[in-house]
Structure formats: C-alpha cells, structure tokens
C-alpha cells in the first residue's frame, strides 16, 4: 500500500520533468529503506500533512542537480548551486509534490504540502522517517532518487491505476 503512494510522487515528478525534457524519464522499482540512510549531496524535502503524513524528498548528485536546473531554465547552463539554482530545484519539488497530492486527493485523500527546503552537502544522512520507499528515476540529466515516507493518518483508497 505504501508503495502505491510513493508511485504517485514518482509519476508526478516525471510529469513535471516532461515539460522541460524531450526524452521520457524511466521510473525504476521502489525499494523499502529502513533506518537512517545516506542521501545524495543535493536533497529537497517537502512535508506532507492531512490524511497521510510524512515527507517527500528528491535527491540528486550535484552534477545532476545542475543539469536539471539547465533543463528547467531552457538551456541556460549552471555551474554552481546558487540561490537561483536552489529556487529552481525547490520549485521542481513543489510542483511535483503539488501534482502528487492532487492525484491522491482525487483518489479520496485530503493532503496538503509544506513549502520545500533544500539541503546541500556531502555525507548527509536522513532519519526519523517511517515506511520510506525510494524510487530511482533515470532522466536526461542523470538519476534522481525519489523518496516517500508516509504513514497513514486516515485511510486513503488504493490507487485506481497501477
């Protein structure tokens, strides 16, 4: 059941990226991750509240993050994760999270998202998450790891489309 929820976020992220990239992204199988886990050096986290509670976060290597910024800004190259690059990545998480929540709410949920926060640095680890699933997504800009950690606050119907 949790896997189905994480797939909403992967599909939403792919939908958003399709606005900016020509080649379709490929979504890999979800893997359950337990305990404290290492994350890549650029991570954007977005909180979820409502009928499901938890968080959604996107992880990138720095080169992938910069390349995604380039795609999202219509070919403008990025060499550093400056304020505007960070704003671009936060907007990606915001748009993807908003879209996923819309899909979940269309299926009976009542969720809201919190504003995104970006973390940059090496050897970062994230803990305190429950029922966390990781879905790798392969894109023209490199791999993005999509993480969804959700616990049911109230029941949400199973996804109608597999």
């Amino acid at each position: 059941m949790q896997t189905n929820y994480s797939r909403f976020f992967a599909d939403a992220t792919v939908d958003v990226l399709s606005t900016f990239m020509d080649a379709p992204a490929e979504v890999g199988p979800p893997t359950e991750v337990e305990g404290v886990s290492e994350v890549q050096e650029v991570t954007v986290l977005l909180g979820l509240t409502g009928s499901l509670e938890g968080c959604f976060f996107l992880e990138f290597s720095k080169p992938s993050a910069l390349k995604i910024c380039e795609f999202m800004n219509f070919g403008e190259p990025f060499e550093e994760l400056d304020d505007f690059a960070c704003a671009t990545l936060c907007e990606l998480a915001n748009l993807a999270g908003g879209r996923a929540v819309t899909l979940l709410n269309d299926n009976g949920g009542t969720l809201s998202i919190a504003p995104p926060t970006i973390f940059c640095g090496k050897e970062m680890r994230i803990g305190g998450t429950k029922n966390k699933f990781l879905i790798p997504v392969s894109t023209e800009a490199g791999c993005i790891n999509i993480n969804v950690s959700i616990k049911n606050s109230h029941s949400v119907p199973e996804r109608k489309i597999a």
Binding site: D83, F84, A87, E91
Partner: peptide, 11 residues
Amino acid sequence: DSAFILKALKM
C-alpha cells in the same frame, strides 16, 4: 513567490 516562475514569466 518562486524566483524560478518569475523568470519563466519574464521570458
């Protein structure tokens, strides 16, 4: 409130 969207709107 997004600098990214403001830039896209300017374009």
